[in-house]
């Protein structure tokens, strides 16, 4: 497969291939395909079991099929597709020959015009809507192929199904690993959640800042600990912070740089109205305008809010309006 991949990576060959692939746009991908099975209760039930879908609309005498099963009724299964055109096969053969042997589905857009019910027999026609230019993705280099299918029962259009796949030559493992490492470096470090602080992070996820309170002596504490620093009591409950506070102290970080942070930036020690202190970001003012005593208010901010990362939610403190700079 190495030889084929090298071919796919050669621009001269790719240009020629790209042009040939474009010629398939607008050609039929499937003509008068028929569903292998009529819409039926057992397949609906198997689907619902697999997906844990207990919607009562999908059972009983007036059952409909889950609308998202639309494509399932058109699948060829192990015995192959019906109605698939020579053009579609040729397109795939060309891509296979160029080393783009792997397939991954990337997009599915379905519109449901009327519910499908047991007994409905579906037919379908599909067209090759577009073939992209050569694209390099995390998975590898290849082409996106978009098809659009009309699904009918008798003469009635019951749904449409636009489907995009990437047909690609898998990226070499080393490249992939390097890419992943680079990404990992650029992300903010995740909090270490353990038995002792899990409740704190559960609160944050619900946009609540929870302070631990000793069940024996009532002393508040933060950060979270398994026992009370004052009386040693192991039992505790929580109170929710009002969100009011002020900058008790701060430092400005210049060095060393960490991948997900761009120095200089201020790290604040915030004293909450309840009396405990928390290390956090001071937002709403530049790093050099943070001052001791600035009144701040809690808010929750999402980080790494991009396509590839799981967003991280953190409590941060916003300087109260009109108070920045001059105070302290």
């Amino acid at each position: 497969m190495g030889g084929r991949q090298a071919q796919a990576a050669s621009p001269a060959v790719v240009d020629e291939l790209g042009a040939r692939l474009k010629e398939f746009e607008g050609r039929a991908a499937a003509v008068a395909g028929t569903g292998k099975d009529p819409v039926n209760e057992p397949m609906i039930r198997h689907w619902c079991e697999a997906l844990g879908d207990t919607n009562p609309a999908y059972t009983g005498p007036n059952a409909i099929a889950p609308p998202t099963m639309l494509q399932a009724w058109t699948m060829g299964g192990l015995s192959g597709h019906t109605g698939r055109t020579q053009a579609y096969d040729e397109l795939f053969d060309l891509l296979d020959e160029a080393g783009c042997t792997s397939v991954v589905a990337t997009d599915c857009e379905q519109e449901y015009l009327r519910p499908l019910r047991p007994g409905d027999e579906v037919t379908f026609d599909a067209v090759i809507e577009s073939v992209s230019d050569r694209k390099t993705t995390k998975l590898g280099t290849g082409y996106f192929v978009t098809t659009r299918m009309d699904v009918r029962v008798g003469q009635d259009l019951v749904g449409t199904h636009r489907f995009r796949i990437l047909k690609y030559a898998p990226a070499r493992q080393k490249q992939k690993r390097q890419q992943e490492e680079k990404q990992a470096r650029a992300r903010r470090p995740r909090p270490v959640v353990n038995r002792d602080n899990a409740g704190f992070w559960e609160g944050v996820a619900q946009h609540r800042l929870l302070i631990q309170r000793c069940a024996d002596c009532g002393t508040l504490r933060h950060p979270w600990l398994p026992g009370c620093n004052t009386c040693g009591g192991p039992d505790w409950d929580t109170i929710e912070a009002s969100g009011e506070g002020s900058v008790y102290s701060y430092v400005v970080m210049h060095h060393p740089p960490f991948p997900a942070f761009a120095p200089p930036y201020a790290v604040g020690l915030i004293e909450l109205a309840e009396g405990v202190r928390i290390v956090s970001n001071v937002v709403g003012v530049p790093y050099d305008k943070v001052r001791i005593g600035l009144p701040v208010r809690l808010e929750f901010q999402r980080y790494d809010d991009d396509e590839d990362a799981v967003p991280l939610v953190l409590p941060v403190f916003r300087v109260q309006e009109g108070r920045e700079g001059g105070a302290g």
């Binding site: 609308p67 379905q110 519109e111 449901y112």
Partner: peptide, 9 residues
């Protein structure tokens, strides 16, 4: 009633 589902993976 679901009318449209459009997803990207």
């Amino acid at each position: 009633t679901l009318r449209k589902v459009a997803i990207r993976l």
